[in-house]
Structure formats: C-alpha cells, structure tokens
C-alpha cells in the first residue's frame, strides 16, 4: 500500500500540452507520477521495450537508490553510517553529490540537501505543519549544512563530520532521474521524447512531429489550482517549477510555506513559486527551489552571473499573481491576469 509519507508533493506546476505521439506511459515513482512520452519512427515493439525498460532499468533502481524514505536505499545507508566514517558510494551518486555541493555554493546556501531535519522539525514531512520553538530550531540547525558533508573525490566516499546529518535529495532527485532517463533513451537512439517527474520537472528531447518549435509546455504557479500563467516551447532543455501554493500551513495568522531557507531555518517568504529553464533536469530542479528561497534580488544576481533563466511568481496586495523573469524570458505566451508582466 502506498504510504502517504512517501508522497512528496513537489510543485505540480507543469502542463504537458496534449498532442500526438506514439507512446506514453505513467508510473508512480518517487512519490509522484513519472511520465515518459516517446516518439520516433521506430518499430512499436522496440519503442514499447524502450519506454518500459526506462522505468525498469532507470527509474525504479534510482528510486531504490535515492529515496530517503526507503530503508535500505543507498541514501539511507549513507545517512545511517557516514557519521562513523567515509562511506563509498556508487560513482554516479557521488557525482550527483558533488553537483549538490556545487549548487549549494552557487546559490549561496539556498539549496542544501542536508535540509531534512529542518523539514521534519517544521512537520512538513507528515504534512502536519507547526512552528518549532526557538530552542528546537537552534538544535536542529546544528545538524544542517553542506559544510558538514565531506566528499572525498579520490575515494568516491562521503562522510559526515557529526552525527545527525542526513542527505535528502527531495529537491533535486526527481530532476536527476529525469536526466538519467533522457541519457538512457539517448543511448538507445531515441531523439524525440518528453520526460516528466511529478509535474515539477520536465525535459524535452528533440522536436515533436507536430511542432517544429519544440515541445509545447504550459506553466502554472507551482502547486496552485487554476489556469496557466503562460507557456513555452522546449527543445533539449529542462523546465522545473517549485512553489508553496499547495504545501503550507497557517498558525497565528501567519502563513508558512514548505520551502525552507536552509540558512535561517525558516520558511522562505515573498516568492511563492519559481521556474528554471536550463540544460539539465538536475540543475533545473535544484535552481527552481533555490529561486524561491533566494527571492527576487539574489535570483536576479544569480541569473546574471551564471546565465540562468528564472521566472518568479509572487502575490501582490490584491492577492493576484505577479511574475518577473530574469535571463532570457521563459514564458513565450503569458496570460494577462492580475499583475503578470
């Protein structure tokens, strides 16, 4: 039976525009619906084998490896043992952890895979949000921070400098799995596919037969009900959204969203949702979360420095969504609603 704890409702912010394609398969994975659309001028038996094996040989094993919910996963193994000394990890996972460290660096700590204890402390892991006490928060923050994770590239091993540190790839794992599926499909000669994880990260490979402009993808304020705020065409690029429209709680008249700033220990304020379009699902997944935490000024600065593209959604005084874009604009067709720019 699916355990509700496993359902990590990241932003459900991407609409896959309907269209004609040869094969589509959806499967529950990593606590959300993973989806692959595959097209191409190939034998149907081959296409079906390819799409099925992408799930069986990539998605399912990676879920087993990356899930911090699954006892016995490699991440759980690291979390249970790395404070005692270096734990050698699968090479690709080590590469991912190196990328996590890099992303922590370029986001000035706004993205951090050691955030798990804070998520629990605020009750978001059980969807029972609560404001922790100052003492509790201070204690938990001692166990959060990528600086406590030692990555030994020579040995391919990870160690923690103290007990209680844990890795939680919830903010990047889905994007990573999307990339690995894209890599797998490419290796088998696919050149036209859409790979999506939980409606929060999608990678568009090639150009679909019905459109020379790429795969048409719609964007909603992440997790919000209602209409799209716009759409774009994607080709050989990833789009990811993050937001707290759906996961939040209100206490004492104050609204607390589920995206926590690892640097302060408090939920991010201001920006309610963000999108990133970049070359990889891994990076897009992490950056969209980081943009929410960073807020407008720091997101603009990051986009300028690293050539990234961001879309931020906030609510104005009338509670209407306002958007701002940095870098090359993400939305091609923006709906005129409220203060959307």
């Amino acid at each position: 039976m699916a355990n509700p704890q496993a359902v990590d409702n990241l932003a459900d912010g991407i609409d896959l525009t309907s269209g004609e394609y040869r094969l589509r398969r959806r499967q529950i994975a990593m606590g959300s619906v993973f989806e692959i659309i595959l097209d191409g001028d190939r034998d149907e038996v081959e296409l079906r084998a390819l799409i099925e094996s992408a799930f069986a040989e990539v998605v399912e094993p990676l879920e087993m490896q990356l899930s911090h919910y699954r006892s016995g996963s490699e991440i759980s193994w690291i979390n249970e043992n790395a404070h005692r000394g270096p734990v050698r990890v699968e090479p690709r996972l080590f590469d991912l952890l190196m990328e996590c460290a890099d992303l922590t660096s370029i986001t000035q700590g706004a993205f951090d895979v050691t955030i798990g204890p804070l998520v629990r402390c605020w009750g978001f892991h059980r969807k029972e949000g609560r404001v922790p006490s100052t003492e509790e928060l201070a204690e938990v923050r001692e166990r959060v921070g990528m600086e406590h994770v030692v990555l030994d590239a020579q040995a391919g091993a990870v160690a923690f400098d103290r007990e209680g540190i844990e890795l939680n790839l919830g903010g990047i794992g889905k994007g990573y799995v999307v990339d690995r599926v894209v890599e797998y499909l490419t290796r088998y000669g696919a050149h036209c596919a859409l790979v999506a994880s939980g409606g929060s990260t999608v990678y568009a490979m090639g150009v679909p037969p019905i459109s020379e402009d790429g795969w048409h993808v719609g964007v909603r304020p992440a997790g919000a009900e209602g209409e799209r705020i716009g759409s774009l065409h994607l080709t050989d690029a990833a789009l990811s959204t993050s937001g707290d429209f759906r996961q939040h709680f209100v206490e004492g008249g104050v609204r607390y969203g589920h995206i926590i700033d690892p640097r302060t220990g408090w939920p991010a304020r201001g920006v309610r949702a963000a999108c990133s379009v970049t070359a990889s699902g891994t990076r897009a997944d992490a950056l969209s979360t980081a943009f929410v935490v960073l807020g407008t000024e720091d997101t603009e600065s990051l986009c300028s420095k690293y050539g990234e593209r961001a879309l931020l959604v906030s609510l104005n005084a009338e509670n209407e969504p306002e958007t701002r874009q940095f870098g090359q604009p993400i939305l091609e067709q923006a709906r005129s609603m409220g203060g959307i720019s």
């Binding site: 084998a49 099925e52 094996s53």
Partner: peptide, 9 residues
Amino acid sequence: NNSWRRPVN
C-alpha cells in the same frame, strides 16, 4: 503490465 522486453544495448 509490461512486455518484459529490453532494448538491445
């Protein structure tokens, strides 16, 4: 619900 077939790699 799958064919159990793998693409040739």
